[in-house]
């Protein structure tokens, strides 16, 4: 069973929680990291080459300018991606529990929001394979 998937992980703190994707990497998955919205936008044309997007919601926009306290850059990014890639599987890994934001995420055709702070790497691995229709 193929497990060498290409995953784009949008996470500004990937250096702190890089072990989150270790089991996936051990399976042969290739994980690329983008730290802000601008980096993702620069990859927009090739985003279709990825099998799955793992997305954080609280990310910088990359402009290095002060942003609104209440802005959820990841949600804006999700909608931008959806406009071009309606079928790309997306999993959100975030600390955000605000139901209004969660509703916005689900409206962006996301089936899973995983809770950062209590998500074991094995749970993420399972969620990724379920999302890709692969048995673990």
């Amino acid at each position: 069973m193929k497990k060498n998937f290409r995953i784009l992980w949008v996470e500004d703190d990937a250096s702190v929680i890089k072990d989150q994707v270790r089991p996936l990497e051990k399976d042969g998955c290739k994980i690329d990291i983008a730290e802000d919205m601008m980096q993702v936008l620069s990859l927009m044309e090739v985003l279709g080459e990825y099998d799955l997007l793992l997305l954080d919601i609280l990310i910088p926009d990359g402009s290095r300018k002060p942003t609104n306290l209440n802005s959820y850059v990841g949600v804006d990014l999700l909608y931008k991606i959806r406009a071009l890639y309606p079928d790309l599987p997306v999993i959100v890994l975030t600390v955000v529990t605000d139901p209004k934001i969660q509703e916005k995420i689900y409206l962006g055709d996301v089936r899973r929001i995983l809770p950062k702070g209590s998500c074991l790497p094995s749970k993420l691995r399972q969620a990724v394979y379920e999302e890709l229709g692969v048995s673990v």
Partner: peptide, 19 residues
């Protein structure tokens, strides 16, 4: 966010270690 990020880092290491 700051607390949960560190907790997530510990969880990752602990589970990978166990596995």
């Amino acid at each position: 966010h700051d607390f949960l990020l560190i907790i997530q880092a510990i969880l990752n290491k602990a589970e990978n270690l166990k596995d």
